[in-house]
Design a protein around this nucleic acid. Structure first.
Lengths: 272, 272
DNA sequence: CTCCATTGGGTACGTCGTACGCGGTTTAAT
DNA sequence: ATTAAACCGCGTACGACGTACCCAATGGAG
C-alpha cells in the first residue's frame, strides 16, 4: 500500500490551497489569460450534457475551446477540481430566492422542481457529485435556502437530515427517470427491446415465488404508467408529508413569535 | 457525436443478454475454467476496499489472481458488469432474514445498521452504484426484506419511496463519515490540517453574514462532537419517525401511544 | 477416435490524466 | 527605462486504462 503517488504528510500540493474555491483564478502578474474558468467549465458542461461525463476529457474540452489540453491546467489544478466547478456551475441554475418565503413546503417544492429539471438537463450530475459536498458558492446558496426554509425550531442537525431527505429523493427519482436512457446508451437497446430481453429474467424471478415485492412492483406499480413529472410530484408529496411530521407543531405556539423572517406570502403552493 | 465506439442500433452486444444476471457463467463445452466469477469478484472487492474503485482495474485484478488481463473477459463481459457483480456481492453481506419480523421499525433499523457497517467496509459502493439498480439476487433479497417490512397497507409506489428514503439516508450518512478519509486520500492532509487550511475560507463565508445556516452548522451542529455511530443512530431515528408518520395508523396495538414523533430530546441552550 | 467450441494468455490500439519543459509575454520592482 | 521574475499557451512524453483481436492448447460431444 501507499507506494508511489504519495507526497509529503502535511504539504498536500504545491500551492497549499485545500480546495478549488480558495485558489484565485489568476494572479496579478503575467500576460492576460486567453480563456477563463467559466468558459472552460461551460464547455465541459456542454460536452457532458451531450455525451456523458467521461466524454468531457481534458483533451476534448481543450479541442472544443480550440487549444491544447495542457493549457487547461493553467486554470484548473486537475480534472477532479474541474468537475467540482461543473457541479457548482449547474447548481447555479437552481437560482434559489434570497430568503425563504415562510412557507417551507412551497419553498422545498420549488427547489425540488427546479432540481429535477436541472438534473434532467445534466444527467451526469449524480455521477459527478459522488458524495463530497465541496461547499461551492452556488451549492451554499441552495443550502441556505433549503435549510433556512426548515428553520422552524429544530436543532440544526435535524434540519440537515430533513433537507438531505428531500434532496436525496429528488436525486434518486431523477436517476430512475434517467435509467432507461442510460441503459439505452449502454446496451444500445430501446426501451421495448430491453423489456423484451428482460422479460424472461423477470418472469423467472416472479415465477419462483420468492419475490413477492418484486411481483407487486411489476404488477401493481402505477409509476410506469404515470407521467414522469406526475410520479415525481406524487412521491415528493409523500416525502414532504414525512418532513412535516418531523417538524414542530405549527398552530399552537406558546412562545413569542419565532425569529423566522416573515415575508408577505402571496405565493401559494403550486401543488396539484 | 457518436463517432467511433457506436455499434448497431438494435443488437447491443454479441450475446444478446441484456444484463449480467441473464448470462450463464459457463457454457457446456470446452475445457474446465481455471477461475470463476466469484473469485474474480472477491479479488476486485478486496482491491477496491484497500485502494479505491479505480485501483480495481482489469490488469490489477488479473495480476492479483495471477493471470493476464484478457483472461477475465472469458468470465465477465466488461468492467461495468464486473462492478455490478461487486455491488451485488457486498450486498450479500447484509444477509437479511428471510421474512420481515412484523416490527417494521426493528427490521429497518437492523437493515440500516448492517448497511452502514457494510458501506464502511466498502467505501467505493456509492461510486459503484451511481444510480442504476441492476436487480442482482442479493440486491433483490434486500429489497424484498426492506420493502416487505413496510407492507402495512400502503400502495407499492409509496412503500418504495419510503424504503428509498431510509436507504438514501444511510448512503448519505456514510458518505459524510467517509468524507474526511476521502479528502485525506485526495489532498494528503490530515483532518486537523484540512481544518486549518479551510478555516480562512469558512471564516470568510461566515463573516460575510450571508450564510446564517452555514454559520449555525459550524457553530451549533453537535454531529461532529458525537460518535459516528451515535450521530448515525440519531439521524436514523429521525428518518424512521418520518416514515412512521407516512404509514397507515396501526390497526390494533396493546399500547395506545399516539404516533407523534418527538422532535426535541434535550436540546437546551443552543445559543451560547 | 475426430471435431470444434472454449480455454488462458499475449500483443496492440486508441484513449486517458498529467508531469515537464520550452519560448514568448506581461508586470512589478528597480 | 531596464530588468528579472512570474505567467502565458502549448507540445512532448509517460504510464496507466479498457478491450479488440489472434493464437495454441484443451477436452466434451458426435
Amino acid at each position: 500500500m501507499a507506494d508511489g503517488t504519495e507526497r509529503g504528510d502535511d504539504t498536500g500540493d504545491d500551492t497549499g490551497y485545500v480546495n478549488i474555491w480558495m485558489r484565485p483564478e489568476r494572479p496579478s502578474r503575467g500576460p492576460r489569460p486567453a480563456y477563463s474558468r467559466a468558459q472552460i467549465t461551460e464547455t465541459a458542461v456542454r460536452i457532458a450534457d451531450a455525451e456523458g461525463l467521461e466524454a468531457a476529457s481534458m483533451r476534448r474540452i481543450a479541442a472544443e475551446i480550440g487549444t491544447g489540453a495542457m493549457s487547461l491546467y493553467r486554470y484548473v489544478p486537475g480534472r477532479d477540481d474541474l468537475i467540482q466547478l461543473m457541479v457548482d456551475h449547474v447548481m447555479g441554475e437552481l437560482d434559489p430566492p434570497d430568503r425563504p418565503s415562510g412557507d417551507w413546503r412551497a419553498d422545498l417544492t420549488l427547489l425540488a422542481g427546479r432540481s429535477r429539471a436541472m438534473r434532467l438537463r445534466h444527467p451526469w450530475l449524480s455521477e459527478a457529485q459522488h458524495g463530497r459536498p465541496s461547499f461551492g458558492p452556488n451549492e451554499l446558496r441552495v443550502l441556505e435556502f433549503g435549510v433556512g426554509a426548515l428553520d422552524l425550531g429544530l436543532p440544526i442537525d435535524d434540519m440537515l437530515v430533513l433537507f438531505g431527505l428531500v434532496m436525496g429523493y429528488v436525486d434518486s427519482a431523477v436517476q430512475d427517470e434517467l435509467a432507461w436512457e442510460k441503459e439505452h446508451r449502454r446496451s444500445g437497446l430501446s426501451k421495448e427491446g430491453w423489456m423484451g430481453r428482460s422479460a424472461p429474467y423477470v418472469h423467472q424471478l416472479i415465477n419462483s415465488g420468492e419475490h413477492p415485492m418484486l411481483t407487486r412492483i411489476v404488477r401493481d406499480a402505477r409509476q410506469p404508467h404515470m407521467g414522469s413529472e406526475a410520479a415525481f410530484r406524487h412521491g415528493l408529496e409523500r416525502v414532504l408529508d414525512c418532513v412535516q411530521a418531523a417538524l414542530p407543531p405549527v398552530p399552537s405556539l406558546p412562545f413569542p413569535s419565532p425569529p423566522k423572517p416573515r415575508h408577505d406570502d402571496e405565493r401559494t403552493g403550486e401543488h396539484g
